[in-house]
Every structure is written in C-alpha cells, then in structure tokens.
C-alpha cells in the first residue's frame, strides 16, 4: 500500500540546511498498522506529509497504492489523496463553518463516494448522533477528534494517516478515541500509519518504528518509557 525507498528530505533554515529524512525505507502492506515514534523534530510529520503526497522528497521514491507520487502532477496527487488517503490531525482541522454532518461527509463528497448509510452508521458509532446540526466549536475536544476520524474514514480510504491523533486529548478521552479509531480501521480494512509519542498508543498496532536522526529503526522493546499523552 505504501512504500518509501531511500527518501531524503532537507529543509533550509537560517542556521543552514537541516536534514530531516536521510535515506528512509519503509513498506506497509494492505491492512497493516504501523506506529511511528520519535522525538519532537525527528521528522515524523514530514514522513507523514510525504506519505500523503502533501510534500515531495528531495530524492528517493514514495509509492502510494502502487503509484510513484513524484511522477504525478499536483492535481493527480490531490486526486490520489482524495480517493485513497484519510488524514487525522492532532489539531482536528475541522471546517468551522460546516455542521457536524457536513464535516463528516466532506471528503467522501469531494471524492464522489458518499454513502449516506455508512455516514449515518459512523455518526452513531462516533457518539455524535443528535449533534449533526451542531458546529465544531460546540463540541468537546474528544468529540471534535472523533468527528475528524469519521471524516477521514467516511470515504473508506485504503490508507489512514494519523498525526498524533490523541495528542490534544486528556488520558481518558485519548483512550476512548484510540479504541474507536482502531475499531473503525479494522472494520474498514484500512492500512494505518500513526505518528505518536506514546508507547501506549503504539502498543496495539502491528508494528512500531522509531525515527531518529533521519533514519528508521525498529523500536527497542526493552525501553519502557511512557508517553505523557497516552
């Protein structure tokens, strides 16, 4: 589903070039789930952006659903993202001027694959029934993130990319949201790549990789650190 081969990415900073990814190789099969951990600034979000086609690598190749994204123009990358990828952000990024229901259906509508029955089921499963006409600002943080997850899964994407999806939530809410996320991923059969700081969040996933100094390595199982935002 997702393959990264010898991906390099460098940013220009006032202090000089900053190498964020230094020859990253990654392969993620259909239905697999992977947690990506690493310190702040280690390049996790950059890797996620490259996987979504939001950014392009300096060198190397990113293949999404069998297509090399560097070979695609911006409109084609946008279409691939629209039809294949669901994105969940730490800051939710809901559209404040759309109602709960409209937010939920937004990506599915954009992709032209809206399924009203599935949307209704999602609303119920997300615990947002009766709140369809509310606006995001009228929801709690946990409800907003559940809605963001619902929006990402409404078009039944093949790949779900989640960037610290519980990073903005308290511990209890984070647990609920994570449980919901994993359940829905299993139900839809989506591949999941999740960026997180928290080993507890990473634990239920099939695999866990550490990003450090621009390279990926299997997480050392002997480490027993706990994330603050689990």
């Amino acid at each position: 589903m997702l393959e990264l081969h010898q991906v390099h990415k460098t940013y220009a900073t006032p202090q000089g070039p900053l190498r964020v990814l230094d020859g990253v190789d990654l392969s993620l099969g259909a239905g697999e789930s992977l947690a990506l951990m690493g310190e702040s600034g280690s390049g996790k979000s950059t890797l996620l952006h490259l996987a979504a086609g939001l950014d392009l690598p300096d060198t190397g190749e990113v293949r999404l659903a069998g297509r090399a994204i560097s070979a695609l123009g911006e409109p084609d990358r946008a279409r691939l993202r629209r039809e294949t990828v669901g994105l969940v952000f730490q800051q939710f990024h809901l559209v404040p001027s759309l109602s709960v229901l409209d937010n939920l259906r937004l990506q599915a509508r954009l992709a032209g694959v809206e399924d009203p029955a599935w949307s209704a089921a999602l609303i119920r499963r997300l615990g947002l029934a009766g709140m369809e006409r509310r606006y995001p600002e009228q929801l709690s943080g946990g409800q907003q993130q559940r809605l963001a997850i619902g929006r990402a899964l409404a078009p039944r994407p093949a790949l779900l990319l989640a960037d610290e999806p519980t990073g903005n939530l308290d511990e209890a809410t984070a647990g609920e949201v994570l449980e919901l996320l994993l359940e829905l991923v299993r139900q839809t059969g989506a591949t999941l790549l999740m960026v997180t700081h928290s080993p507890r969040v990473a634990a239920p996933l099939d695999r866990c990789l550490m990003l450090s100094r621009g390279r990926l390595a299997p997480r050392d199982a002997s480490r027993n650190d706990t994330g603050a935002n689990a």
Binding site: A52, P75, A78, R79, F89, V95
Partner: peptide, 16 residues
C-alpha cells in the same frame, strides 16, 4: 486559511 489547508489535505488540488 485553515479551511483551505484542510481542503488541500483532503485531496483538493491547488488549481481546483
């Protein structure tokens, strides 16, 4: 701006 960024992330091309 936030809405535009979200729409782009959801697969809307810059041109569109």
């Amino acid at each position: 701006l936030g809405m535009l960024r979200t729409l782009r992330a959801l697969g809307v091309s810059g041109r569109a």
